[in-house]
Amino acid sequence: MSVSCIAAKYKDDESMSVKLFLVTVAVVLSLAGCANLGVEPWQRSVLAKPEMQLISDPLSAGLDDHIYFSKEASSGGRGFAGGGCGCN
C-alpha cells in the first residue's frame, strides 16, 4: 500500500499528524538514500579545503545578505531571514 493510500485513510482532524508522518517518512527515506553516497574519511582532502565549504567566505555572505535584504523583498535561505536594520 502506498504512502498516499495510507494518508487518505486519515480524517481531516488528523491531517497535521498525517503531514508529520509524511515528513518523517520523507526524511527517513532520504537519509537511507543518502547512505549510498559519500566518501571515506581519508578521501576528504578536497572537501576539507576552506574554499570548498558551502559558505567559504562568511563575511562576504553576510554583507551580501545585508544588501539584498535592504533592496529586495526576500530574505533567508542559506541562513536566517532575520532583520536587524531599518534599511532605507
Binding site: C34, L37, G38, Q43, S75, G77, G83
Partner: peptide
C-alpha cells in the same frame, strides 16, 4: 540537509520559515 556526494562534490537543501 547537507550531503557529501563524492570526493569533490557537496550539496545542501534547506527549508526556512520566518514569522514576523
Amino acid at each position: 540537509l547537507t550531503q557529501v556526494i563524492d570526493r569533490k562534490t557537496i550539496m545542501q537543501v534547506s527549508y526556512s520559515f520566518s514569522d514576523v
